[in-house]
Amino acid sequence: MTYKAILNGKTLKGETTTEAVDAATAEKVFKQYANDNGVDGEWTYDDATKTFTVTE
């Protein structure tokens, strides 16, 4: 399944996708990606669109 992350960081804005077996696995991948890029904020998840959003 393909999951998407939308990054609304102070220094990084954009989107990325990952293939994962479930939302929990995708969330770990996206949170690591955000952390590696200095983005730390509030996370939300929309199951209907399989989209995570982080906003700083």
Rank of each mutant, 00 (worst) to 15 (best):
T44L: 07
I6T: 05
A5G: 06
T55F: 08
V21P: 15
D36K: 10
W43Y: 02
T49I: 06
G9M: 10
D22K: 02
E42M: 12
V21E: 12
G41D: 02
G38I: 04
D47C: 08
N35E: 14
T55C: 08
T16N: 04
T16E: 05
K28E: 10
K4G: 04
I6N: 05
K28T: 10
E42F: 12
T53S: 05
D36P: 00
K13G: 05
K13T: 09
K31M: 09
Y3P: 02
E56Q: 10
D47G: 07
T25L: 06
A23T: 08
A34K: 00
W43C: 04
E19P: 04
K50M: 09
G38S: 06
W43S: 01
T2G: 05
T25Y: 07
I6M: 05
D36Y: 08
D40C: 12
F52M: 01
K31T: 05
K10R: 11
T25K: 05
F30Y: 00
T53A: 04
V29I: 15
G9N: 04
T55S: 10
E15Y: 13
K13V: 09
D46P: 01
F30Q: 00
A48D: 12
N37Y: 13
T51H: 01
K13P: 04
E15Q: 11
A24I: 11
D22C: 05
T17F: 14
E27Q: 12
V39N: 03
G41T: 02
T25W: 07
G41S: 02
K10N: 11
E27L: 15
L12Y: 15
V21Y: 12
D36I: 10
N35P: 01
L7R: 00
A5T: 04
V21W: 12
K4M: 07
F30C: 03
D46C: 10
D47Y: 08
T44D: 09
Q32K: 14
N37W: 14
Y3I: 01
T17L: 09
T51Y: 01
Y45G: 01
D47N: 09
M1I: 14
T53F: 11
T51C: 04
K4C: 08
E19G: 05
D22F: 03
A24K: 11
W43G: 01
T18K: 04
E27H: 12
A23P: 11
V29G: 03
G38M: 07
N35T: 14
